[in-house]
Nucleic acid binder design. Structure first.
Lengths: 113, 113
DNA sequence: CCCTTGACTATCGAAGTTCGATATATCAGA
DNA sequence: TCTGATATATCGAACTTCGATAGTCAAGGG
């Protein structure tokens, strides 16, 4: 039993969300995650690489063995979502959309007495 | 310099977001948080009460000493956001909106192969 | 040529957070 | 009375995140 899709921890969530846009290497991921939240979320290398490994173990991402992986610096290790990972990322995105929509809704349309 | 607004941990985030709609007591909060994510997020009492205390310590919420607090069962302890808490909740909401918007945007507007 | 800086991956231990079980008490209904 | 939902509370184990540290490679300055 791998995992019945409990909400992903913050770092994992941000990584799979960032990867929805295409494969990236670790360091770029670090920057991208920050950018997606206007610098509010800063993931250090400790969180990054540890999370990346966990994500690979859970079969949500894989190290790319293709395209960008070798047209670029040898040092870089690219990652992309697996089918599982993409499905989960999409589900999490939907969950966040629902959450944001509902909370924002209560602010304007709040229960009238 | 209290805190430069690092992203709140998941449980805290959900609680302050739920409280944006008005004061609630612990147990109701537990249910509300679940509802806001269609049952995807289930917060047990361990997480709930521990987080509630931390939030009080951080001056993001306070135990209500008013209205609902006593027109209702004596057992219930109501909490509401402080000014700090509301500001932070709103900031976090905005952050999530931005994140969701950007990620979703890349999906549709992304490079069409 | 050497040295510094930034890109890049990687690991470790400490600190912080979440989980699930457990406990206790009240209240409504079968 | 027994059960199940409401309601709060606590503990320890497991998990996640953080920040420091480390080392390589490439480019630019002195």
């Amino acid at each position: 039993m791998t995992k019945t899709s409990k909400p992903l921890p913050a770092a994992s969530l941000h990584i799979v969300l960032a990867l929805l846009d295409g494969e990236l290497h670790g360091y770029a991921l670090m920057r991208r995650v920050g950018e997606l939240s206007d610098g509010a979320v800063k993931m250090g290398p400790g969180t990054l690489y540890g999370t990346l490994n966990r994500l690979v173990d859970d079969d949500l991402i894989v190290e790319t063995t293709g395209r960008a992986a070798h047209i670029d610096s040898e040092r870089r290790r690219y990652y992309e979502l697996t089918a599982n990972g993409r499905a989960l990322a999409l589900a999490e995105l939907a969950r966040l959309q629902t959450l944001v929509h509902r909370v924002a809704g209560h602010l304007t349309g709040g229960a009238p007495a």
